[in-house]
Amino acid sequence: MDAPPIMGNVPGSYALGVFRDRHPALLRQVREALPYTPDRHRALDRLADEVARDVMEPLDPSAHDFAAWAEWGRGMIGRRWVDVPFLWAESYFYRKLLAATGYFEDGPWRGIDPFGPVKQAELGGPEVDAELAALDRAAASPPGERAAGLLLGSLWGNRADLSFKITQGDERERASELVVDDSDLLWSLVRDRAPGRICVLADNAGRELLPDLLLADHLLAEGLATDVVLHVKPHPYFVSDATPADVAACVRRLAAAPGQAGKAGGRLWRAMADGRLSPRAHPFSCAPLPYRDMPDDLRAELASAALTITKGDLNYRRLVGDRMWPVDTPFPAVTAYFPGPVAALRTLKSDVLTGVDAGTAARLDATGEPWRTSGTHALIQVRA
């Protein structure tokens, strides 16, 4: 089973808009986010020029991962950004951005998250206070309703993608729809079987990671999981993607909150201390490759899980393959390679789509709205 990869050279396509609009805007934002020194300004300007010229240049040969990217990019580096598969090119852009900010180099900017200021501003914003306060009201709800609410909170928390906001703005006022809902099957996998390890492949930091952590707290507190392994990125990636530092910041944010949020934060803090909640930062999390190509150690780890939950759009693209599948291609068929039960929680922010009824897709297409890329529609898909 196969389909052509999504490319950025299709006029009017979402992918083309990412290269033409989002990446230049992001470079301007990063340039102003921190008091970078002249050498970093020059490097960022060179990357902006590279994007404008639409020619992918190689990494500096001194880069620690030069050989890996040269191998991954064989036959692609040197071509136009839009003429190679979208997933690969977008991943390479973010690696080049880290090179421009000096993230991996010896010097004052080594290890400094270029997206840190926007992550921190969001995590400390008043919207988070309001969202955490809602946990107090939810505490009086029946257990099933609370569990459903936590799952939906983790799903729709994906709207907090900071890179998406750069060009899309606030989508909260638009109509929302869950186009596929396998939540009953998801809950059956954790309620009707002996508790086991649950792996969560996290996506964004801040306002998305908080509900992911709250869902993990529920799974642990209710005895639905023996432990939860939270896979995050080993270094900054795709603007708002969560790193171990972001996990620590979010647990601290929860633990410092009043009411039910603070209680959950305390439980999560203790769960991390005793190993029931473990952050994991596998290098493959930042590879420009689909999960079908995962290395053997990661495959073995996920095979041992009772369930793996993938969060967000990028993980979905890597899970099913960033390809132009017919929308009704069965989700279980394209994920049959995955080494265990898997569930996808995803708000739709790019073109790839599987497992959607053709009639539903036709109805939504007829509205003329960009429902596949606007972040206003979502899905919960499960392969048991």
Rank of each mutant, 00 (worst) to 15 (best):
D241V: 00
A242T: 00
V247E: 11
A248M: 03
A248D: 14
A249E: 13
R252I: 01
L254V: 03
A256T: 05
A257W: 02
A257V: 02
P258W: 03
Q260Y: 01
Q260S: 09
A261G: 09
G262V: 05
G262P: 03
K263T: 14
A264V: 10
G266D: 09
L268N: 08
L268S: 06
L268F: 12
W269L: 15
W269H: 13
R270Q: 15
A271G: 08
M272E: 10
A273H: 08
G275I: 02
R276A: 14
L277Y: 07
P279W: 12
P283A: 06
S285Y: 15
C286F: 04
P288L: 09
P288S: 10
P290E: 12
Y291W: 15
R292L: 15
M294C: 04
M294H: 07
P295W: 04
P295K: 05
D296A: 15
D297M: 03
A300E: 15
A300D: 14
A300C: 05
A306Y: 05
A306I: 01
L307Y: 04
L307D: 08
K311G: 07
L314M: 15
N315W: 13
Y316C: 01
R318V: 02
V320T: 12
V320D: 00
G321N: 09
D322E: 07
D322K: 04
R323Y: 06
M324T: 10
M324A: 15
P326H: 10
